[in-house]
Design a protein around this nucleic acid. Sequence first.
DNA 1: ACTGTATTTCTATATTTATGGAAATATAGC
DNA 2: GCTATATTTCCATAAATATAGAAATACAGT
Lengths: 107, 107
Amino acid sequence: MDIKSAVLQLSSIAQEARLEIFRLLVQAGPEGLPAGSIGETLQIPASTLSFHLKELSHAGLIHSRQVSRFIYYSANYEAMNGLLAYLTENCCAGAKDCAPSSICKPK
Amino acid sequence: MDIKSAVLQLSSIAQEARLEIFRLLVQAGPEGLPAGSIGETLQIPASTLSFHLKELSHAGLIHSRQVSRFIYYSANYEAMNGLLAYLTENCCAGAKDCAPSSICKPK
DNA sequence: ACTGTATTTCTATATTTATGGAAATATAGC
DNA sequence: GCTATATTTCCATAAATATAGAAATACAGT
C-alpha cells in the first residue's frame, strides 16, 4: 500500500459520522445493512448519509450491492486489514515484537 | 478509547505531510528528531511544519522535548498502539482470530 | 404506465483545514 | 546585552470537507 491510499482510507474514517457508519457495518457482519437502515440507526439525513457512504466506498473500505430496491452496504474487512497492516508496519518500523501482518479477519 | 479520541488521532495522520512526519519519527526511534531536521528531510516550510506538529501533538501521537536550542519530536508508540487496538477491536467486533490487543512496541 | 419507496445527485452554504511569509519568541554562545 | 539560530505564532488566503433540502433517478408491485 502506498501512502496516498493510506491517507485516503484514513481520511474516510477520520470523521465521526463515517467511523460510526463503519463500526455499525462491521458489527452487522458480511451481509451488511441497507442505506436507509444505517441512516435510521444513526439519525443521519439521506443525502448526508449518501455523501459519507460514497467517501467510504471511494476509499474502498466498504462495498455495496443492490438487493431489490435496497442497496446493502458492508464492511470490506480485507481493506481494513490492509490499512491496519500498513499502520502496524509504519508504527513498528525498526521495532521488534510486531504483530503479524494479518490482523483481522471477517467472521 | 472513545470515538472522538479515535477520530482526533485518525485525523492527525489522515494527511500526507503528517503521515510522512509520523513515519519519519517512527523510523527515527525513541530519541526522535529536531523540528528543523524533519522540515529539511521532508522539505516543509517551518511554519507549515509547526502547524502539522501541533496537530500531531494535540492528538497525542507525538511527544516533544527541548534539548538546548532544539525541540525534539518523537513518536508516541503507546498512543499509536492504542489507536491500532481500537481499530482492531472495531474491525474485528464479533469476528474470530483477532490480533492481541498489544500490537506494537517501541524498540 | 402509475404509485410508492429507496437512494443518489444537484446545489448552496457553512465550516474546517492547509499553506507559507512575516513577525515574535526562545535559547545559547560570545 | 548582542547576535545567530530554532521554532512558534500571527495573519491572510486558498482549498477541501460537511451538511441537508430539493429534485432526479432507480426499482418493484399493481
